[in-house]
Design a protein around this nucleic acid. Structure first.
Lengths: 233, 233
DNA sequence: ACCTGAACACCGTTCAAGT
DNA sequence: ACCTGAACACCGTTCAAGT
């Protein structure tokens, strides 16, 4: 297991270390071994160098994690989307984030750890432009986009956490939901009537379909008239 | 600094260690020193014992964090709420979670790390009962509650992350938002027109007010008729 | 300018030994 | 049954020394 590690670990080995190659290797480690898989020792081994060398290109671990996160988000948000309506584009963008976080669960926690930073702004910008295109008045745009962002990042993060939790227990997603469902069904009927009643729906739901349904709930809410703030037309 | 630590650290010192006292001490450490402040060494020092002793009562660190998280959530969700309508109760519940996570930022990340577990079910149950009281049809309850939960946990978590990030930089919340706003205003106008346009709104917004506005967006969405799923009445 | 790798000050967790 | 505290196998980060 320990033989020829340095020689085989990567095709670049003779090229000098760059910030980009470090970030690329970090993403590989995070994807294959999870958040705890990214260590300076594992990273320096994969890059055939010493731990200290990395600090020449990267400030510290959180800098590294943010850079890796931004690389994924930038790729996702730069993908071109062709849709007929702003609503459809919002759904496509939301699904893009959902799938990216599903594929790279560590992005979910990294994103929420540094709110307001570049990766989050990339998403906010694209959603915001569509909310504008939707014709939402200026003074309600912030509220609408905040709600959408919170929902998208919230659900995506939870979905990814579900997947990770399932993986650590050696189950696939549907087995995990099955297990969770039976746990909920065993809750005290007096105290948890609602959780019990939705346990069955939870068992065989489709995360992506539910996610899009929630997006539609919010889009309807944005669309539908306020109680009193806007007089009539 | 190191003198008389054991003798003074707590009023219970002669009483034996219990799971409850360990959890209580953990909450204190987490509240005062953040997520990284909870270590078995700091904890055992505060409890005037050795690190190993804690393992007699607690399985491991994640068990400990979950227990601390559940203690906070249970307190919050067991607080009685008197409201005239289901909508008002949902707002009160949402605000309760928001404030609890604001006061104990570590609860935000702990909650989302183990989806579907007891702390989350406590919240889901109370929200769910109100969604039922709202008259939402059975087959749409899961969707409605999912959307609300994702939004509530999403925004609360981000708000708490904001506060933490501000604190690590020695700023209070409004100074932090001010700083963030000016950063957004310096973004490339071609690439980030929307982020720039909402930067000013973000600077002097009230997180709690925005949060409730988002809840109302979702409540309106839940309320308003579907495109075709329900024929007419 | 960039890299090396030993060293420092931490972690969570275990476990023989005590009471 | 419950506690002690040394020991183990890790961390992130620093820094003198090399090229």
């Amino acid at each position: 297991m320990a033989m020829a590690r340095k020689a085989r670990s990567s095709q670049r080995r003779e090229e000098s270390l760059t910030r980009e190659s470090i970030i690329e290797a970090s993403i590989e480690l995070l994807d294959s071994n999870g958040e705890s898989g990214l260590t300076f020792r594992a990273l320096s081994e994969q890059l055939a160098t010493g731990p200290g060398a990395i600090y020449w290109h990267i400030a510290n671990k959180s800098d590294l994690l943010n850079a890796a996160c931004d690389a994924i988000v930038a790729r996702t948000m730069n993908a071109p989307i062709v849709s007929a309506t702003p609503e459809a584009t919002i759904r496509a963008l939301a699904l893009g984030v959902f799938d990216a976080i599903d594929a790279h669960p560590w992005v979910g926690s990294a994103l929420t750890r540094v709110p307001g930073h570049l990766p989050m702004v990339r998403v906010l910008e694209r959603i915001g432009q569509q909310v504008r295109a939707l014709g939402v008045p200026d003074d309600q745009q912030w509220e609408a986009v905040s709600a959408l962002m919170a929902y998208i990042l919230g659900v995506s993060g939870q979905n990814a956490a579900n997947g990770q939790l399932a993986r650590t227990r050696g189950l696939d997603r549907s087995d995990f939901l099955e297990k969770l469902s039976t746990v909920w069904l065993q809750l005290d009927p007096e105290e948890y009537p609602f959780a019990r009643s939705v346990a069955k729906q939870m068992r065989d739901h489709d995360d992506r379909v539910d996610f899009l349904a929630g997006i539609d709930v919010i889009l309807r809410g944005i669309d539908s008239p306020r109680r009193r703030r806007r007089p009539e037309h």
